Simulated assay, not measured.
Amino acid sequence: MGEFIMPDWLKNQDAETIHRRMMARLPPDIDDTEGGFPWDFTKPTALEKAELLQFHLVETLKIMFPEWSYGEYLDLHAKRVALERRAAGYAYAELEIEGIAGTVIPAGFAFAVPSVNSQPAIEFRTMEAAEIAEDGKAAVGVLAVLPGTSGNVPADAIVLMVSPMRGITAIKNPEKASGGTEEESDDSLRARIMEIEQGLDTGFVGCDADYIRWSKEVPGVGTSFVIANWDPAVKNSVKLVVLDSNGEPANDHILELVYNHIMSPEDRLNRKAPIGAILTVVAPTMKGIAYSFSASLVDGYDAATVADSISKAIQEYYIKAKSEGLVQYIHIHAIITQAPGIYDFTRLTMNGGIENIAIALDEYPGTISVDLGIPREVVG
Score class of each variant (00 low, 15 high):
M127R: 09
L53I: 10
N236G: 02
V153A: 07
A177W: 02
L189S: 09
L74G: 13
G276V: 10
S237F: 02
E131N: 12
V116W: 00
A82Q: 14
G206E: 08
R376G: 10
L297Q: 11
A130Y: 04
G148H: 06
A78K: 10
T45L: 09
I168S: 06
L160W: 01
Y317E: 08
Q315D: 15
P219Y: 04
G300V: 15
D135F: 03
V282W: 00
M350D: 13
S150Y: 04
V58N: 04
D135C: 04
H56Y: 00
A93D: 01
L348S: 15
I158D: 05
G151E: 04
E217M: 06
V113I: 04
E98N: 12
E197C: 14
V153W: 01
T42D: 06
I314M: 07
T202I: 12
R376C: 02
H77M: 14
V238N: 06
V238K: 00
I227K: 03
V242L: 01
M161A: 11
V218Q: 06
M350Q: 13
K287Q: 13
N246T: 14
A295K: 12
A209M: 09
E59G: 09
A303E: 13
I254A: 02
V238G: 07
L361A: 15
S118I: 14
M64K: 05
E355Q: 12
P274C: 12
E67H: 11
I158T: 12
K49Q: 15
D187H: 04
I97R: 02
G341C: 03
I332G: 11
A138N: 01
Y211W: 08
F225E: 14
I374K: 01
I5K: 04
S178I: 14
I196R: 15
R376Y: 04
P7E: 01
T42C: 02
Q54Y: 00
G2L: 02
F65H: 14
S294F: 11
